[in-house]
Design a binder for these strands. Structure first.
Lengths: 141, 141
DNA sequence: CCTTCTGTAACTTATTTTGATACAAATACA
DNA sequence: TGTATTTGTATCAAAATAAGTTACAGAAGG
């Protein structure tokens, strides 16, 4: 289970919330559709909350709803809101500083990493949550 | 240690090989620069071999060298050659088919995943191994 | 032959994600 | 005010995977 699917789950959850605008949706209900545990969903909602994408309420009749209109939320925001690592990881242990390649490779790779990540965000930012919601609802890809 | 750094290690190794054209380089030597175990390097070289990026020789005076000129190897090929998962993982467990969102979300996410991955490869393909080698050697990013 | 290397299998360790249980605090409502 | 409901969060267990390690067969040079 070590493959990070938080972005997928986040999009799923937000698409659900997009379908029930202004009404509070319970983590239990979301968990049921995502097919996972309610705590996993609540952890995810916590991150989306911090990113001001959702609003949650405790207590009876509590639950979560979108903080903004689905047209105003794009996938890049979701990507940045959740913990989904980097495109590729840099070296686990720092390379040898005694080697001319090892000495500088990390800087070059880090730079590349940032560039790629910027590209991903650019592509993701082209889609709004509304777009996704419509694609899912219409069963059209 | 569960963050996949195979792409980083692969670029590192190939940059080393680019620096010693035509001469066999031993996995031990590469491991030393990457600061890891020689077996980890050999496993990596195995994948690069399958992708026809390197040629390895067993036996005394064995080792590995580039199969092609560094100008003819781009980073997208390296990315595809090594196991570095997807940009984001789809749901670990399939979402509920009873939910209109759950039923279709995977198809939409899968499509998005492929589009993003194509974008990554496009960006990576702009760099050759020679480019990287020069950046690393000159300590310029 | 003997030495040097790679290729690969097998096993261990470290790290991370996800799943599950439990409970305090917040809120609605009777 | 009291009760039921729901989130937030802590804590622990389970599962998956990457990386580290040891070991050894087999290839190649001399």
């Amino acid at each position: 289970m070590a493959a990070n699917s938080q972005f997928s789950m986040a999009v799923h959850v937000l698409a659900m919330l997009a379908g029930s605008r202004d009404e509070n949706t319970k983590s239990d209900y979301l968990a049921c559709s995502v097919n996972t545990n309610a705590v996993v969903i609540r952890r995810l909602l916590g991150q989306l909350n911090q990113a001001s994408l959702v609003i949650s309420q405790t207590g009876a009749n509590g639950g979560s709803r979108l903080a903004r209109c689905p047209n105003d939320i794009n996938l890049a925001e979701i990507y940045k809101a959740v913990n989904c690592g980097e495109v590729f990881a840099l070296h686990a242990k720092a390379p040898s500083k005694d080697c001319p390649i090892g000495k500088n490779i990390e800087a070059v790779l880090g730079c590349l990493q940032r560039e790629i990540d910027k590209g991903i965000e650019e592509k993701l930012s082209r889609y709004t949550l509304q777009n996704v919601f419509e694609m899912v609802e219409q069963g059209k890809v």
